[in-house]
């Protein structure tokens, strides 16, 4: 079943006296329980697209649908009922003055304590960490806690913006494992924005490749990796292979 859909999404920003089109008529869809990767280099418009989907920015053109219902331009609070974001910098996604428990509860008001305990267990986090502040956690712990918070809110869709790019290789693997584990236990979908096509290959079944604000290629992950059609996708895959050696 189609959970999320975006049609002809466009967003332009003013940069000095110039108009820069960050997202140019991009359409996408996300199925239930599906993990979708949006891949591209820096400045390709993937994070801007994610902000549009989350309602943090309003598209200049195009519409967004959740379960067939148009939510374009709706308030963040309404959108937050079905989707949550996981940010690149996990530390800055938590208020430095607040304990983890308060930050997590802020998003999951009225949700059960049992659910929180289960989520912590699934992500391999100690309950004692809830009493700490973000600065007292490691980067990996903080990122896992932000995943816990997003799922504890009851959102069915997670929008993950470069969530592994600030982490070392072993912590990246931990995060991938956490998602694989959670996927077996819970029903949720996710959109991952990343420049790491190899890492996305381990997590997602579908991929969208973006360049200069345009979606240049999309399809099933294995198919695109095995037979890329666009030159830019070929370049990304080639670079990923070189880095793995």
């Amino acid at each position: 079943m189609e959970l999320l859909k975006g049609t002809e999404l466009t967003k332009a920003y003013r940069k000095k006296d110039r108009k820069v089109t960050a997202v140019d008529r991009v359409s996408f869809s996300l199925q239930e329980k599906e993990f979708l990767a949006i891949v591209g280099e820096s400045g390709s418009g993937k994070s801007s697209l994610l902000r549009l989907i989350a309602g943090l920015d309003r598209p200049d053109a195009g519409r967004l649908y959740y379960r067939g219902e148009d939510y374009t331009g709706k308030k963040c609070g309404d959108i937050g009922r079905f989707l949550q974001m996981v940010f690149q910098d996990a530390y800055s996604s938590f208020d430095p003055k607040m304990k983890m428990l308060d930050s997590v509860r802020e998003c999951g008001a009225g949700k059960s304590e049992e659910d929180l305990r289960e989520l912590l267990k699934s992500t391999g986090l100690d309950e004692a960490l809830l009493m700490k502040r973000p600065g007292e956690l490691s980067g990996g712990q903080c990122q896992r806690m932000s995943i816990v918070r997003a799922l504890y809110s009851g959102a069915q869709i997670l929008l993950c913006d470069e969530i592994t790019s600030a982490l070392d290789v072993s912590t990246q693997a931990q995060i991938v494992h956490v998602f694989q584990q959670l996927r077996e236990e819970r029903i949720f979908s996710a959109i991952f924005v990343s420049h790491d096509i190899a890492l996305m290959g381990e997590l997602c079944e579908r991929i969208m490749v973006m360049k200069d604000g345009v979606c240049v290629e999309e399809g099933m992950m294995q198919e695109v990796i095995a037979h890329p059609t666009h030159d830019y996708t070929k370049l990304l895959i080639e670079n990923a292979r070189k880095q793995s050696f």
Partner: peptide, 13 residues
């Protein structure tokens, strides 16, 4: 514009 403010906005605060 810090992510924790955006998270609070998405939480409907």
């Amino acid at each position: 514009n810090e992510p924790y403010i955006q998270t609070a906005l998405l939480a409907g605060k």
